[in-house]
Design a protein around this nucleic acid. Sequence first.
DNA 1: CTGTTGTTTCGGCCGCGCCCGAAGCATTCG
DNA 2: CGAATGCTTCGGGCGCGGCCGAAACAACAG
Lengths: 237, 237
Amino acid sequence: MKDGPTIAEIAALIGDPARANMLMALMSGMALTAGELAREANITAQTASGHLARLAEAHLILREVQGRHHYFRLAGQDVAGALEGLMELAARHGGLRARPGPRDAAMREARVCYDHLAGTQGVRLHDAVLRQGLVVATVDGLGLSPAGRARFAAEGIDIAAVERPGRPACRACLDWSERRHHLAGRLGAALLQNFQQRGWARRDEGGRTLRFSRAGQAGFENFLAVTVAAPQPIYGG
Amino acid sequence: MKDGPTIAEIAALIGDPARANMLMALMSGMALTAGELAREANITAQTASGHLARLAEAHLILREVQGRHHYFRLAGQDVAGALEGLMELAARHGGLRARPGPRDAAMREARVCYDHLAGTQGVRLHDAVLRQGLVVATVDGLGLSPAGRARFAAEGIDIAAVERPGRPACRACLDWSERRHHLAGRLGAALLQNFQQRGWARRDEGGRTLRFSRAGQAGFENFLAVTVAAPQPIYGG
DNA sequence: CTGTTGTTTCGGCCGCGCCCGAAGCATTCG
DNA sequence: CGAATGCTTCGGGCGCGGCCGAAACAACAG
């Protein structure tokens, strides 16, 4: 009698704290074993097994069996997108009562959030590109300014690819450890890739922590420090 | 000890069938009364009242009291976006076992889905712009082609506004009655607005059904029929 | 004032589903 | 082969939350 499909079932799957914690852990983009995910969610292995089976059956995650280990990862970009949408809603109001961030100091400093830079350095990057006017606030979100296009192109970023539709070029993603926004979207992903290709930073083996090299730290600092001649206006009001 | 905020609470709110049905009803973009929403969800007024209070407390919906009627509407674009993300996931796999579409023939023909055209005509629009190469598939989603920019600009669409970041310019949104995609995103919203401004179609009083005028039907048909000289290639993939 | 309609609050029933203990497979190692 | 590890299935306890009936509250009509 009503339209509307089984969106409720999907949301109910994500709506359980244990499952939500596992999905958030998988937002790092890595594949994790059932045991690791059970520990992430603070539940026993049996309980986790049941949850993972349900998530896999709903095609929210994919299972890959290697020997006696079962690896799980997010089923795709659309799942990550849906989770991001929920994260935005969770962050909007009453974000105060959220739990404290990751304990690991290195992880708090710099880590990967699905495909972009997060942590203290991620927030600094977000603030810097805004302060420099490379990214500007528009009526509803963030966008590249002309100065930003020129600058990022000079840094080796493919601007046409970044501004391709289907996914926002720039996006403010809430940082769980910093309680402030870091830079996500296509630009965030392209910049992280760029940093890694330059050898500025590389991912910790089997973790989401990001480690900057000495030269990389210097290059990154230099990147943050550069200022443009005239600050860009905020268009759209 | 874990990061991850209250995303589970948000998802759990959407994860109840009754609440999900109410939210889907509000995806029409209209404000509906508590009683109407109770009927949409097939529950009694008391139960609906409790649900609506919880949704409002979580800032997923907004309440507006007029006399003895309480009107509710989605809290904003971000809520609609999160719901769309879940709709995509719900549609991806096993969409077969979903319920039949709206009964009303007129509504099945053309209706408003939040801010864009849905129903048979919405699907036709989606197929037409793709067939004509005005919108092309990219590596991850849909985008405007150069021919599309020219054509839509000629139709009176503000291309710069459509391609502004923060929301995809083009987007395929699953149509519940047709089980196929219709055109959403900024372009979908701009086109619906354009059609209404031209007097081609107008919204049914107090409903989401869209009624085309005789001239509007002709103009729309003409719009769909036009073909470009050379079909645009699909880039990126 | 009384009566009607729309909405909310209260109280209690009841079932879904989350959870863990125990046991059963599967894989690897010695 | 038996022991250890990783994961799954089975069974049952139990608590959270959705649901409705009854009643109170609010707005309007007469």
